[in-house]
């Protein structure tokens, strides 16, 4: 026992060092986005907001942002809707082939991005679909579905099915039960799935890079900027805003997920 207590501070400080390793690299983006110099190197040369001000003037960037928002919203709506049905099937119903079906829906998580991207390009061109926002959405729904299904499945898992049976017994219709019993309990999970799938789409690069055609999403736009050293500070400012946005979205998703846990636990 005394040995374990000796181990404790060691492991704790390792954990702290590990967190620093996780966070420090990303923190350099905000630090240098306020740096007056155009070269990303120490020492810092002064504080400025000018890189952020320049972002508002970049039309190509705003176009790419618009594309990303459209793709992200469409991906979030479609994958959460399809995912909701599937999650309910996997959590509530037992049927022959359920295990393999669940495995199949999770498969997009473990296929290398380059394979998904290149094979979808081949598919869409053979179907006569030119690369566009539509093809990116189709690909992003594929990538986001595993996230939607696993989040929504855990909200169905935590929710007592006898509540629905009680509603039926008390004379509610199927629709009425869904609206008045199921939806309120699962709603936080739906919000959480929506936010996570939006983030997955908003940050995705390789597939969008293959399928974008002449409608780049934000990561594809950033990729085109990374090669130009003169554009570096702008890219840093943009990256800082994106990281901030992603983190806020994720914290919101986490908040809703917990509320879902608490609300189903208290009922």
């Amino acid at each position: 026992m005394t040995r374990l207590q000796h181990l404790r501070p060691g492991l704790g400080s390792y954990a702290a060092a590990y967190l620093a390793f996780l966070y420090l690299p990303v923190l350099f983006l905000p630090v240098f986005s306020f740096n007056a110099g155009t070269i990303v190197a120490f020492p810092l040369t002064g504080f400025t907001f000018q890189w952020y001000e320049k972002l508002a003037e970049a039309d190509a960037l705003l176009g790419a942002l618009g594309n990303s928002l459209i793709v992200g919203l469409a991906t979030a709506v479609i994958s959460t809707a399809i995912g909701l049905f599937a999650a309910r099937a996997f959590a509530r119903h037992s049927f022959f082939g359920r295990g393999p079906a669940e495995g199949l829906v999770m498969l997009p998580l473990v296929i290398p991005g380059i394979i998904v991207a290149s094979s979808m390009l081949v598919l869409f061109i053979n179907m006569g679909l030119q690369p566009s926002l539509l093809t990116i959405i189709a690909g992003h729904v594929f990538l986001a579905l595993p996230f939607a299904v696993s989040i929504l499945k855990s909200s169905f898992d935590q929710f007592d099915g006898s509540l629905e049976e009680a509603a039926y017994d008390l004379g509610e219709t199927v629709v009425g039960t869904f609206r008045r019993v199921t939806l309120p309990v699962v709603a936080p999970g739906i919000v959480s799935s929506f936010l996570v799938t939006f983030t997955v789409s908003f940050d995705e690069f390789v597939l969008a890079f293959f399928l974008a055609g002449n409608e780049p999403t934000l990561p594809v736009y950033i990729w085109s900027q990374i090669r130009f050293p003169a554009k570096l500070p702008n890219t840093l400012a943009l990256g800082t805003l994106l990281i901030l946005g992603s983190i806020l979205l994720l914290l919101a998703a986490e908040y809703f997920r917990r509320r879902a846990e608490r609300s189903s636990a208290s009922r």
Partner: peptide, 30 residues
């Protein structure tokens, strides 16, 4: 129970199944 399970999981399974199998077949052919 199983009919409901099949019906509800159908859209996701068919969508992912299609986008795994058909592109893979096309890649093998190419």
């Amino acid at each position: 129970d199983s009919a409901k399970g099949y019906a509800l999981s159908m859209p996701a399974v068919v969508y992912v199944g299609f986008l795994v199998a058909v592109p893979l077949a096309l890649m093998v052919a190419h």
